[in-house]
Amino acid sequence: MFSNAITWWTFFKISIHERLIYRADFMLGTLMRFLPTLTQIFLWWAIYDVISTPGSIDQTGGPDGDIAGYKYGDMVAYYLLVIISRAFSSMPGLTRGIANQIRSGEVKKFLIQPVDMQGCLLMQRIAHKLVYYLIATIPFALVFWLCGDFFVDGWPEWDVLIVFYCSLLLSFLLGFFLESCIGLIGFWFLEVTSLTFIYMLMTFLLSGHMFPLDLLPDSIGNFVDFLPFKYLAYFPAAVFLGKVEGAAMYQGLAVEVFWVVLFIVLSRILWWKGIKHYAGFGG
Protein backbone atom coordinates (compact mmCIF):
# COMPACT_ATOMS: atom_id res chain seq x y z
CA MET A 1 0.00 0.00 0.00
CA PHE A 2 2.77 2.38 1.00
CA SER A 3 4.95 1.52 -2.01
CA ASN A 4 1.90 2.02 -4.16
CA ALA A 5 1.52 5.52 -2.81
CA ILE A 6 5.15 6.27 -3.59
CA THR A 7 4.70 5.05 -7.16
CA TRP A 8 1.70 7.33 -7.64
CA TRP A 9 3.56 10.24 -6.08
CA THR A 10 6.47 9.70 -8.51
CA PHE A 11 4.16 9.64 -11.52
CA PHE A 12 2.56 12.78 -10.20
CA LYS A 13 5.86 14.62 -9.77
CA ILE A 14 7.20 13.67 -13.19
CA SER A 15 4.04 14.90 -14.86
CA ILE A 16 4.18 18.19 -12.99
CA HIS A 17 7.71 18.89 -14.18
CA GLU A 18 6.82 17.82 -17.68
CA ARG A 19 4.12 20.44 -17.77
CA LEU A 20 6.07 23.32 -16.31
CA ILE A 21 8.51 23.43 -19.22
CA TYR A 22 6.59 25.77 -21.51
CA ARG A 23 4.99 28.25 -19.11
CA ALA A 24 4.82 31.39 -21.25
CA ASP A 25 3.54 29.57 -24.30
CA PHE A 26 0.91 28.04 -22.08
CA MET A 27 -0.30 31.34 -20.67
CA LEU A 28 -0.53 32.88 -24.10
CA GLY A 29 -2.41 29.85 -25.36
CA THR A 30 -4.90 30.21 -22.54
CA LEU A 31 -5.50 33.87 -23.30
CA MET A 32 -6.10 33.00 -26.94
CA ARG A 33 -8.77 30.57 -25.86
CA PHE A 34 -10.91 33.54 -24.95
CA LEU A 35 -10.79 35.08 -28.42
CA PRO A 36 -13.79 33.11 -29.69
CA THR A 37 -15.67 34.33 -26.62
CA LEU A 38 -15.01 37.86 -27.80
CA THR A 39 -16.92 37.22 -31.01
CA GLN A 40 -19.64 35.48 -29.00
CA ILE A 41 -20.05 38.65 -26.92
CA PHE A 42 -20.61 40.73 -30.04
CA LEU A 43 -22.80 38.14 -31.70
CA TRP A 44 -25.13 37.86 -28.74
CA TRP A 45 -25.21 41.61 -28.30
CA ALA A 46 -26.46 41.89 -31.86
CA ILE A 47 -29.08 39.20 -31.18
CA TYR A 48 -30.30 40.67 -27.90
CA ASP A 49 -30.36 44.13 -29.44
CA VAL A 50 -33.05 42.97 -31.86
CA ILE A 51 -35.37 41.40 -29.31
CA SER A 52 -35.15 44.22 -26.75
CA THR A 53 -37.19 47.37 -26.52
CA PRO A 54 -35.28 50.01 -28.47
CA GLY A 55 -33.00 52.15 -26.35
CA SER A 56 -33.54 50.14 -23.18
CA ILE A 57 -30.51 49.23 -21.12
CA ASP A 58 -30.14 46.79 -18.22
CA GLN A 59 -27.52 46.65 -15.47
CA THR A 60 -24.78 45.39 -17.79
CA GLY A 61 -25.23 48.32 -20.12
CA GLY A 62 -26.53 45.81 -22.65
CA PRO A 63 -29.95 45.32 -24.17
CA ASP A 64 -32.66 44.02 -21.83
CA GLY A 65 -34.10 41.15 -23.90
CA ASP A 66 -34.60 37.62 -22.61
CA ILE A 67 -33.92 34.32 -24.39
CA ALA A 68 -35.02 31.14 -22.58
CA GLY A 69 -34.51 32.89 -19.24
CA TYR A 70 -31.09 34.23 -20.15
CA LYS A 71 -30.47 37.97 -20.10
CA TYR A 72 -27.60 39.30 -22.18
CA GLY A 73 -25.26 39.35 -19.17
CA ASP A 74 -26.22 35.76 -18.27
CA MET A 75 -25.48 34.60 -21.78
CA VAL A 76 -21.96 36.04 -21.80
CA ALA A 77 -21.35 34.83 -18.25
CA TYR A 78 -22.53 31.39 -19.36
CA TYR A 79 -19.95 31.21 -22.15
CA LEU A 80 -17.20 32.28 -19.73
CA LEU A 81 -18.25 29.70 -17.14
CA VAL A 82 -18.38 26.98 -19.75
CA ILE A 83 -14.70 27.62 -20.45
CA ILE A 84 -14.08 26.84 -16.78
CA SER A 85 -16.15 23.66 -16.90
CA ARG A 86 -14.34 22.53 -20.00
CA ALA A 87 -10.99 23.30 -18.35
CA PHE A 88 -11.99 20.58 -15.88
CA SER A 89 -13.78 18.09 -18.07
CA SER A 90 -11.89 18.15 -21.36
CA MET A 91 -9.16 15.53 -21.71
CA PRO A 92 -7.17 16.35 -24.82
CA GLY A 93 -5.40 13.32 -26.21
CA LEU A 94 -6.62 10.82 -23.62
CA THR A 95 -8.70 8.64 -25.92
CA ARG A 96 -6.12 8.66 -28.67
CA GLY A 97 -3.34 8.06 -26.17
CA ILE A 98 -4.96 4.92 -24.81
CA ALA A 99 -5.87 3.61 -28.24
CA ASN A 100 -2.34 4.24 -29.53
CA GLN A 101 -0.83 2.39 -26.58
CA ILE A 102 -3.06 -0.57 -27.29
CA ARG A 103 -2.28 -0.56 -30.99
CA SER A 104 1.45 -0.09 -30.66
CA GLY A 105 1.69 -2.73 -27.97
CA GLU A 106 2.98 -0.27 -25.40
CA VAL A 107 0.14 -1.34 -23.14
CA LYS A 108 2.12 -4.51 -22.44
CA LYS A 109 4.16 -2.68 -19.86
CA PHE A 110 1.10 -2.36 -17.65
CA LEU A 111 0.56 -6.11 -17.89
CA ILE A 112 4.08 -6.76 -16.63
CA GLN A 113 4.62 -3.98 -14.12
CA PRO A 114 2.58 -3.88 -10.93
CA VAL A 115 1.13 -0.53 -11.99
CA ASP A 116 -2.45 0.08 -12.95
CA MET A 117 -2.83 1.80 -16.29
CA GLN A 118 -5.82 3.89 -15.41
CA GLY A 119 -4.38 4.90 -12.08
CA CYS A 120 -1.21 6.01 -13.79
CA LEU A 121 -3.10 7.99 -16.43
CA LEU A 122 -5.32 9.54 -13.78
CA MET A 123 -2.29 10.71 -11.80
CA GLN A 124 -0.80 12.24 -14.94
CA ARG A 125 -4.06 13.99 -15.72
CA ILE A 126 -4.43 15.38 -12.21
CA ALA A 127 -0.88 16.70 -12.33
CA HIS A 128 -1.40 18.25 -15.76
CA LYS A 129 -4.64 19.84 -14.70
CA LEU A 130 -3.19 21.21 -11.47
CA VAL A 131 -0.33 22.84 -13.34
CA TYR A 132 -2.81 24.12 -15.85
CA TYR A 133 -4.94 25.78 -13.18
CA LEU A 134 -1.85 27.18 -11.51
CA ILE A 135 -0.66 28.89 -14.67
CA ALA A 136 -4.04 29.59 -16.23
CA THR A 137 -5.29 31.39 -13.13
CA ILE A 138 -3.60 34.58 -14.27
CA PRO A 139 -5.22 34.87 -17.71
CA PHE A 140 -8.52 33.54 -16.32
CA ALA A 141 -8.52 36.09 -13.50
CA LEU A 142 -7.74 38.85 -15.98
CA VAL A 143 -10.59 37.93 -18.29
CA PHE A 144 -13.12 37.45 -15.50
CA TRP A 145 -12.10 40.74 -13.93
CA LEU A 146 -12.56 42.50 -17.28
CA CYS A 147 -15.89 40.79 -17.80
CA GLY A 148 -17.08 41.11 -14.21
CA ASP A 149 -19.98 43.34 -15.23
CA PHE A 150 -21.64 40.49 -17.08
CA PHE A 151 -22.18 38.65 -13.81
CA VAL A 152 -25.25 40.64 -12.90
CA ASP A 153 -26.10 38.75 -9.72
CA GLY A 154 -22.55 38.75 -8.39
CA TRP A 155 -21.29 35.74 -6.45
CA PRO A 156 -23.86 33.06 -5.67
CA GLU A 157 -24.66 31.83 -2.12
CA TRP A 158 -22.08 29.61 -0.42
CA ASP A 159 -24.11 26.40 -0.77
CA VAL A 160 -24.44 27.04 -4.50
CA LEU A 161 -20.72 27.66 -4.69
CA ILE A 162 -19.98 24.37 -2.95
CA VAL A 163 -22.22 22.49 -5.37
CA PHE A 164 -20.52 24.37 -8.21
CA TYR A 165 -17.05 23.26 -7.08
CA CYS A 166 -18.23 19.69 -6.50
CA SER A 167 -19.80 19.57 -9.95
CA LEU A 168 -16.52 20.79 -11.46
CA LEU A 169 -14.52 18.07 -9.69
CA LEU A 170 -17.05 15.47 -10.73
CA SER A 171 -16.97 16.75 -14.30
CA PHE A 172 -13.23 16.12 -14.29
CA LEU A 173 -13.79 12.52 -13.20
CA LEU A 174 -16.67 12.06 -15.61
CA GLY A 175 -14.62 13.40 -18.50
CA PHE A 176 -11.70 11.18 -17.57
CA PHE A 177 -13.58 7.91 -17.25
CA LEU A 178 -15.90 8.54 -20.17
CA GLU A 179 -12.97 9.18 -22.49
CA SER A 180 -11.05 6.24 -21.02
CA CYS A 181 -13.95 3.98 -21.94
CA ILE A 182 -13.85 5.17 -25.53
CA GLY A 183 -10.08 4.71 -25.64
CA LEU A 184 -10.37 1.19 -24.21
CA ILE A 185 -12.74 0.23 -27.00
CA GLY A 186 -9.47 0.26 -28.94
CA PHE A 187 -8.92 -3.29 -27.62
CA TRP A 188 -11.58 -4.43 -30.04
CA PHE A 189 -11.43 -1.86 -32.85
CA LEU A 190 -7.74 -0.84 -32.91
CA GLU A 191 -8.67 2.33 -34.80
CA VAL A 192 -10.91 4.65 -32.80
CA THR A 193 -10.31 7.95 -34.62
CA SER A 194 -13.82 8.11 -36.03
CA LEU A 195 -15.29 7.14 -32.69
CA THR A 196 -13.30 9.90 -31.02
CA PHE A 197 -14.57 12.31 -33.58
CA ILE A 198 -18.19 11.38 -32.94
CA TYR A 199 -17.58 11.78 -29.23
CA MET A 200 -16.05 15.22 -29.76
CA LEU A 201 -19.01 16.28 -31.85
CA MET A 202 -21.47 14.98 -29.27
CA THR A 203 -19.78 16.73 -26.39
CA PHE A 204 -19.52 19.99 -28.25
CA LEU A 205 -23.20 19.97 -29.07
CA LEU A 206 -24.82 18.12 -26.16
CA SER A 207 -22.66 19.34 -23.29
CA GLY A 208 -23.83 22.89 -23.77
CA HIS A 209 -20.42 24.03 -24.93
CA MET A 210 -21.92 25.53 -28.05
CA PHE A 211 -24.94 27.20 -26.46
CA PRO A 212 -26.96 26.89 -23.24
CA LEU A 213 -29.04 23.72 -23.42
CA ASP A 214 -32.11 25.68 -22.29
CA LEU A 215 -32.26 27.08 -25.82
CA LEU A 216 -33.07 23.66 -27.26
CA PRO A 217 -36.69 23.00 -28.13
CA ASP A 218 -38.33 20.87 -25.40
CA SER A 219 -38.60 17.72 -27.50
CA ILE A 220 -34.82 17.54 -27.93
CA GLY A 221 -33.99 19.20 -24.60
CA ASN A 222 -35.76 16.52 -22.54
CA PHE A 223 -33.78 13.83 -24.30
CA VAL A 224 -30.45 15.62 -23.85
CA ASP A 225 -31.29 15.94 -20.16
CA PHE A 226 -30.98 12.17 -19.79
CA LEU A 227 -27.48 12.00 -21.26
CA PRO A 228 -24.26 12.34 -19.27
CA PHE A 229 -22.83 15.00 -21.60
CA LYS A 230 -24.50 17.99 -20.00
CA TYR A 231 -22.41 17.50 -16.83
CA LEU A 232 -19.27 18.22 -18.84
CA ALA A 233 -20.09 21.87 -19.42
CA TYR A 234 -23.67 22.96 -18.93
CA PHE A 235 -24.42 21.80 -15.41
CA PRO A 236 -21.66 23.63 -13.46
CA ALA A 237 -22.32 26.85 -15.37
CA ALA A 238 -26.08 26.57 -14.86
CA VAL A 239 -25.58 25.99 -11.14
CA PHE A 240 -23.38 29.06 -10.83
CA LEU A 241 -25.88 31.23 -12.67
CA GLY A 242 -28.81 29.93 -10.60
CA LYS A 243 -30.54 28.28 -13.57
CA VAL A 244 -30.69 25.05 -11.58
CA GLU A 245 -31.67 25.70 -7.97
CA GLY A 246 -32.63 24.03 -4.72
CA ALA A 247 -33.66 20.39 -4.86
CA ALA A 248 -33.02 20.15 -8.61
CA MET A 249 -29.45 21.25 -8.02
CA TYR A 250 -28.73 18.49 -5.48
CA GLN A 251 -30.59 16.00 -7.60
CA GLY A 252 -28.41 16.95 -10.55
CA LEU A 253 -25.30 16.48 -8.47
CA ALA A 254 -26.51 13.03 -7.42
CA VAL A 255 -27.13 12.05 -11.02
CA GLU A 256 -23.64 13.27 -11.87
CA VAL A 257 -22.21 11.02 -9.14
CA PHE A 258 -24.20 8.17 -10.62
CA TRP A 259 -22.71 8.76 -14.08
CA VAL A 260 -19.19 8.97 -12.66
CA VAL A 261 -19.58 5.67 -10.80
CA LEU A 262 -21.13 4.05 -13.85
CA PHE A 263 -18.22 5.04 -16.07
CA ILE A 264 -15.64 4.02 -13.46
CA VAL A 265 -17.19 0.55 -13.30
CA LEU A 266 -17.58 0.38 -17.07
CA SER A 267 -13.97 1.36 -17.69
CA ARG A 268 -12.78 -1.31 -15.22
CA ILE A 269 -14.88 -3.94 -16.97
CA LEU A 270 -13.61 -2.82 -20.38
CA TRP A 271 -10.05 -3.02 -19.09
CA TRP A 272 -10.40 -6.56 -17.69
CA LYS A 273 -12.26 -7.81 -20.73
CA GLY A 274 -9.83 -5.96 -22.97
CA ILE A 275 -6.63 -7.48 -21.67
CA LYS A 276 -8.19 -10.94 -21.98
CA HIS A 277 -8.91 -10.14 -25.61
CA TYR A 278 -5.54 -8.48 -26.19
CA ALA A 279 -3.23 -10.20 -28.63
CA GLY A 280 -0.11 -8.03 -28.30
CA PHE A 281 0.66 -6.86 -31.80
CA GLY A 282 3.80 -4.89 -32.40
CA GLY A 283 7.00 -4.69 -30.45
Partner: peptide, 27 residues
Protein backbone atom coordinates in the same frame (compact mmCIF):
# COMPACT_ATOMS: atom_id res chain seq x y z
CA UNK B 1 -16.77 14.74 -40.40
CA UNK B 2 -16.25 18.12 -41.98
CA UNK B 3 -19.87 18.15 -43.11
CA UNK B 4 -21.13 17.34 -39.64
CA UNK B 5 -19.25 20.33 -38.20
CA UNK B 6 -20.96 22.46 -40.79
CA UNK B 7 -24.32 20.93 -39.95
CA UNK B 8 -23.81 21.73 -36.28
CA UNK B 9 -23.02 25.31 -37.13
CA UNK B 10 -26.20 25.46 -39.14
CA UNK B 11 -28.12 23.97 -36.22
CA UNK B 12 -26.84 26.63 -33.84
CA UNK B 13 -28.18 29.42 -36.02
CA UNK B 14 -31.40 27.54 -36.66
CA UNK B 15 -31.85 27.62 -32.88
CA UNK B 16 -30.83 31.27 -32.59
CA UNK B 17 -33.37 32.23 -35.23
CA UNK B 18 -36.09 30.54 -33.21
CA UNK B 19 -35.58 33.36 -30.73
CA UNK B 20 -34.81 36.33 -32.95
CA UNK B 21 -35.74 37.47 -36.43
CA UNK B 22 -32.53 39.25 -37.25
CA UNK B 23 -28.92 39.52 -36.08
CA UNK B 24 -28.29 43.19 -35.33
CA UNK B 25 -31.24 45.56 -35.48
CA UNK B 26 -31.88 46.95 -38.94
CA UNK B 27 -28.96 45.12 -40.53
Amino acid sequence: SSMSWAAMNWGLFKIIYRHTGEIGRGT
